[in-house]
């Protein structure tokens, strides 16, 4: 059995680091794992996606439409952009956090206001929470990625593995405590 997870969001949100911690952990816990990331043109503000697949044996690093077991959206409207990658009965994790793209900022396009309503209507199994706000309360908005990662680990049913150990291995020492705190909060969502 191969499981597929699609991370989507905006450059600068810590998506690549979150998927790195996930893949390092999966390897440590004995899975074959592949991860693919796309570096767009912009360092900040452009779309970012990473794809993680794990199981006994993984060939393709890419996930097709309608094939992701979990879609993790670090930004609200990105969930609507990528939901077609989610398989029926898959899980959708959405950060209730809006980052306006430039066409929205300059008034050429609008940021939709009906996302939550449409998610309800679609019957999709989703969790919607403001990870940025939670992270700010914990002490650093940059740890929003760890809050989301915690929620993802929980929904994968992998919360009993030693993720704190993985976080310690991947992050510099001074960042471990606050990120672990954010991760643990995510597990409770």
């Amino acid at each position: 059995m191969v499981k597929s997870i699609l991370f989507v969001g905006v450059g600068g949100q810590g998506i690549i680091l979150a998927s790195k911690i996930l893949t390092e952990g999966l390897l440590k816990f004995g899975y074959d794992v592949k991860m693919s990331e796309v570096h767009g043109m912009a360092q900040r503000g452009g779309s970012v996606t990473t794809q993680v697949r794990f199981g006994d044996k993984v060939y393709s690093p890419l996930i097709g439409e309608g094939e992701a077991d979990v879609v993790v959206s670090f930004e609200k409207v990105e969930a609507a952009r990528w939901i077609n990658y989610l398989k029926k009965d898959g899980k959708l994790i959405v950060n209730d956090y809006e980052i306006f793209s430039l066409p929205v900022l300059i008034g050429k396009e609008n940021y939709p206001t009906n996302i939550e309503e449409e998610l309800e209507k679609s019957g999709v199994n989703f969790k919607l929470f403001n990870a940025a706000k939670i992270a700010e309360e914990i002490g650093n908005i940059k740890t929003q990625n760890m809050v989301i990662l915690g929620a993802l680990v929980k929904s994968l049913g992998l919360e009993n593995l030693d993720w704190e150990g993985v976080i310690k291995e991947v992050l510099p020492e001074k960042l471990v405590d606050i990120n672990t705190k954010a991760f643990k909060y995510g597990l409770s969502i």
Partner: peptide, 10 residues
């Protein structure tokens, strides 16, 4: 079998 939201995505 895919999900689609009736949302105008910018």
């Amino acid at each position: 079998d895919k999900y689609k939201l009736n949302v105008a995505v910018p």
